[in-house]
């Protein structure tokens, strides 16, 4: 474990917590008898969260952590896997099923066919992998899928007029975690012999590059202290 990887995992955890906070805000808000102005805004405007991306991430964790009960690595590793599995599936459940949260989900805008991401990633995992075994192919699939899982969310953000802060923070933290992982891979490459994993590295690089334009608009909105806006 190195500082880059720990920072990466904590950033990833933060992104999940921000999303859970956002869902909690929507839930608690709608419970009020009188719609306060914030509540009204929250409930009327779409939450800006893409269910498609959340479903893709649930699939990423489900196929990435197949070995959670077979290969024990550390308490930290197991706990974090359980947190990511539990949170991603519960977020999908909230947006799909929760009587209040699902009202803030704008399915007419979140139209990305994530099937078009799942199939190519699966085919690619069948062709390019480190070992042609069930677990290894699914693990490789989860790497390819995670690289593109943010696309429905980024496209939804372009369509969403005013991106609220929590959603912007969520996407930023999600992009930042993989960027920190790249530093972790560089560190491990120079400190550990035989540590070479092209598939992981290239997938992680592609994933981070997909956030490049978001990072640009995110930082310029911070610098100019204006609302985050992605060009359509």
């Amino acid at each position: 474990m190195n500082i880059f990887r720990l920072a990466g995992d904590m950033t990833h955890l933060m992104s999940v917590l921000v999303l859970l906070l956002k869902i909690h805000t929507i839930k608690s808000c709608a419970g009020k008898s009188y719609p306060c102005s914030l509540c009204f805004i929250l409930l009327e405007s779409s939450s800006g969260i893409s269910l498609k991306t959340q479903e893709l991430y649930a699939l990423v964790f489900a196929t990435r952590y197949l070995d959670i009960f077979t290969d024990f690595i550390s308490v930290y590793n197991t706990i974090m896997k359980l947190i990511f599995l539990g949170s991603s599936f519960s977020i999908v459940w909230y947006i799909r099923r929760h009587k209040i949260v699902r009202r803030s989900y704008d399915k007419d805008q979140d139209t990305f066919r994530h099937f078009f991401l799942v199939l190519p990633c699966l085919l690619l995992a069948l062709i390019i992998n480190e070992k042609f075994t069930f677990k290894e192919v699914l693990w490789t699939f989860s790497l390819y899928l995670e690289a593109v899982a943010i696309l429905p969310q980024l496209i939804l953000l372009q369509r969403t007029r005013n991106i609220d802060n929590l959603t912007g923070q969520y996407v930023f933290l999600l992009g930042a975690y993989r960027a920190l992982y790249i530093l972790n891979w560089i560190y491990r490459y120079f400190t550990e012999p035989h540590y070479v994993h092209w598939i992981t590295w290239i997938s992680g690089l592609v994933q981070t590059l997909l956030y490049a334009d978001f990072f640009y608009y995110y930082f310029s909105s911070l610098k100019n202290n204006v609302k985050l806006k992605l060009p359509a």
Binding site: D9, R64, D67, S74, N77, K81, F84, W139, N184, H197
Partner: peptide, 10 residues
Amino acid sequence: KKASSSKDEL
């Protein structure tokens, strides 16, 4: 020693 795999990462 098992080649340090990236499976020990999340």
